[in-house]
Amino acid sequence: MEPFRNLASKVVPLDIANIDTDQIIPKQFLKLLGKTGYGQYLFFNWRYDENGNPTENFVLNLPKFKGRQILLTRENFGIGSSREHAVWALKDYGFKVVIGVSFADIFYNNCTKNGVLVIKLDKNTIDDFFSTKTDDDFEIDLAQQQIRINSTIYSFEIDPTIKNSLESGIDEISKTLQLESRIKKYEDKKNLTVQPNTIL
C-alpha cells in the first residue's frame, strides 16, 4: 500500500445520505478478478442512463468536478454489502479522501486498508461545507489531523493505529506475522481440528 501523502484539492459534493455500496459499485461489476479498473463503474446507476449515456446532472459528470480527489458526503456512507470493490472503485476513480458525518463499519475498515483516508466531522460542519465550501481548496494534513480551508482550520479525530498505517503504508500482514510465536502458542493451547464424521 502506498503511504498517504497530504494533498490539496477541491471536493466533489455528493449531497445524499445513506449511500449503500450497491450504489457505489453495482453488483454487475464485481466479477473482475483484480483490484483495479473499477473507477469507470463508480456510481454507475446514477452516472449513466439506461442507454449508457452520462446523466446530465450527476456530480461526477459535471466538468467542473473532474479531477477532484476528495469526496464530500453525508451520513451513513457505505452501508450494506462488505464488498471492498466499493473502495477500489473510489480509489481507482481518483478519490484519496472521503469526508462525511458517519460511515458503515466495514466500509470504514476497507478504506483504511487501501490507503483511503476517511474523515468524520459533525453535521453542522458538513452542512457548512455543502452550502459554502464546494469550490474552495481543502488542504488535507494527516500528520496534524487538520483540514485547512482558506485560513480556517478544521481538526479531525483519527485512530492512532489507522493514522500510522496510512502514513507508513506498511503491509498489515507482515506486521501480524511477526507475532507468529503468539499465534502458535494460542493454537497449541486449543484443540482446533475439524473432522467430518462421514466421508464427504
Binding site: 462488505s82 464488498r83 471492498e84 473502495v87 466495514i106 475498515n109 476497507n110 486498508k113 487501501n114 498489515e172 500482514i173 501480524t176
Partner: peptide, 8 residues
Amino acid sequence: IGTSEVEH
C-alpha cells in the same frame, strides 16, 4: 470482512 481482511 472485506477482501484485504480475507487475505489477512
